[in-house]
Simulated scan of single mutants.
Amino acid sequence: MHNTGTKENIVVSKPYLTIRSENGSANCIVNALNSNDHVFDVQQNYVNISGFTVENATGNQEAGIYLNSTQHCNISSNDVTNNDDGIYLHSSSNNTLTNNPANSNNNFGIYLHSSSNNTLTENTASNNYYGIYLYHSSNNLLYHNSLINNTNNAHDTGTNQWNTSIVGNYYSDYTGSDNDSDGIGDTSYQIPGGSNIDYFPLMHPWGKPPLKCDLGGDSQITSTDAAIALQIAVGSRQFDDAVDVSGDGKVTSLDALMIMQAVAEGTEL
Rank of each mutant, 00 (worst) to 15 (best):
N106H: 10
I184W: 11
T151H: 08
L17P: 11
D218V: 04
T252A: 01
H136N: 15
P15M: 07
T70G: 07
T124L: 09
S25L: 09
G249D: 15
D79R: 09
S146R: 07
E265H: 15
N163R: 11
E268N: 09
K7P: 08
C28L: 12
Q43L: 13
N99T: 01
T175W: 09
N94E: 07
S253N: 09
N139G: 13
D214Q: 04
A154G: 13
N127W: 05
V234I: 12
A226I: 06
S137K: 12
S35R: 07
G217D: 05
L17Y: 03
K250H: 08
N60F: 01
G5T: 12
W206H: 09
Y135K: 15
Y130M: 03
K250W: 05
N139P: 13
S69F: 07
A57T: 02
E22G: 01
N99A: 07
N105A: 02
D156Q: 12
Q161S: 10
K208E: 13
H2N: 15
K208N: 11
G216A: 09
N107R: 13
A226L: 07
T151E: 10
A154C: 12
Q44T: 07
Y16H: 08
S69I: 10
G249T: 12
D85S: 06
N83E: 00
T6Q: 14
L211Y: 02
D241A: 00
Y66G: 03
V12D: 02
S114Y: 10
H144Q: 12
M260W: 14
V11K: 11
S188Q: 14
N9S: 06
D173R: 00
R237T: 08
S115E: 05
T151S: 11
A229P: 06
M1E: 15
L17Q: 12
N107D: 14
S25C: 09
Y199C: 07
S146V: 06
W162Y: 03
T96W: 03
N123C: 05
K7T: 06
S236V: 00
N106K: 14
N68M: 11
S104P: 13
C73L: 08
S115Y: 00
S126W: 04
N139R: 15
E22R: 04
K14T: 07
G176W: 05
H72T: 15
I197N: 10
Q161D: 06
T267H: 01
G194M: 10
N31K: 10
V263C: 12
